[in-house]
Write a protein that binds this DNA or RNA. Structure first.
Lengths: 222, 222
DNA sequence: CTAAATATATATGTATACAAAATACAAAAT
DNA sequence: ATTTTGTATTTTGTATACATATATATTTAG
């Protein structure tokens, strides 16, 4: 029998399409920090009306990617060193919370997924494009988020990651750091499997700290 | 000479006005969880067009107060016991982070504000309306947030508080708990002034835990 | 030549119109 | 009686028009 549920829900509101288009453009740097987002111009460029553009821009605002001023419009958010430090500081705190909860709540199926993901990540190093590796690394952390069981925590962590999206490649670029990354992930798996909360927190703190250092080093902003 | 800067920036976009109106209506319970928000109906009721209504509803969505489904519309979010537990859990983590940072970064002026605020709070107990007391209590915590110096942390904590707004009166109602509240606040001031991070974390955890217990007790939801 | 003033253009804010999908409901079929 | 199907109505999605504020260019006063 055929699967009729397959093509269901293929619909995406234009505002969503526009949102993702603009978001990607910002993260790729095609729309530069400080650049003015003009509704009519974008509408013409994307072949839609102003309405979905406006709604997409508002969504971008809540993600922190653009700054809106009433009657002046929206500009691509400048990310300052201070902003990034703040975000990363909060992220460390919440990642520690996530692994602590994961130690308590993770099940066998999730542990298996974690190991499988880690194995795939190791196999990709040197063979795949950096973005693919970065995606796999994010997947690894996603599994831990999910295992925490706290939906609000997951939501906030996903949003924080969004802010760092522009820099996620940077810390994968350096091949010398791959071995450290792999080691830290493995240490994390062991700690979580043993329900060793303190160890897990220690490892994740180190892990994110490394990323922080790399991101801040590669930052060409004030 | 007259103050011409006074009436400057009096302008609020309609979407902001509508947003606050709808938000209050939800928090007051006039718009009940599960209730469908219909654009034309709200537009007629508030005497504006659909455009600002739509934009306000989207803002409410990002605050977690409504749930939107494409082509179906928006409903007031049901707050489940699980949601609340999740929010409060995250809040404890972030409040601990806030007091820890406050211990490091707070200055004399802020400590003075904290003490003044606490004094005002004590004077209000029994004399003022509960909402006024709740406001003053929020002000107390706001000073600590600010003293942390982490803007992202402040933003997230403010957003989490938003979610709990409906219940903030509950834990002020019980007069027997006032003495505990005052004690905890004072203990917090001492700990922060002494830069005693561990003690401050301990106190704030207890403080929020008490609120959590009261909120969950008073909860009439699943 | 500079700076204030004014006119012009451009952008956002808001309202409205039209299209398409979802829902409600009644009639028909089983 | 229950399900199905067709139709009317409601509702959201998107486009567009108009009003008003802001930015830009131009003119004019000093």
């Amino acid at each position: 029998m055929h699967d009729f549920t397959m093509k269901i829900n293929e619909y995406l509101p234009l505002r969503e399409v526009v949102f993702h288009t603009l978001r990607d453009a910002i993260l790729r740097g095609e729309l530069e920090p400080g650049e003015h987002l003009m509704e009519v111009q974008l509408a013409n460029k994307l072949g839609v009306s102003r309405t979905p553009i406006r709604e997409a821009i508002r969504q971008l605002q809540t993600e922190g990617l653009v700054i809106m001023t009433p009657r002046k419009g929206a500009v691509v958010a400048e990310i300052t060193r201070e902003d990034l430090t703040d975000v990363l500081e909060v992220r460390i705190t919440l990642e520690k919370m996530a692994v602590a909860l994961a130690c308590e709540n993770i099940n066998q199926e999730e542990i298996a997924r974690l190991k499988k993901c880690q194995q795939e990540l190791e196999n990709m190093l040197g063979n795949e494009k950096l973005t693919e590796i970065a995606n796999k690394d994010e997947e690894f952390h996603d599994i831990i988020y999910e295992a925490s069981g706290n939906k609000r925590l997951i939501q906030i962590l996903n949003n924080l990651r969004e802010q760092l999206y522009r820099y996620r490649i940077e810390y994968i670029k350096d091949e010398q750091k791959w071995v450290i990354l792999v080691e830290e992930h493995n240490a994390l798996i062991v700690a979580i499997e043993n329900k060793d909360v303190d160890e897990a927190k220690k490892v994740i703190r180190k892990h994110i700290d490394n990323q922080r250092q790399t991101i801040l080093e590669n930052l060409k902003i004030n």
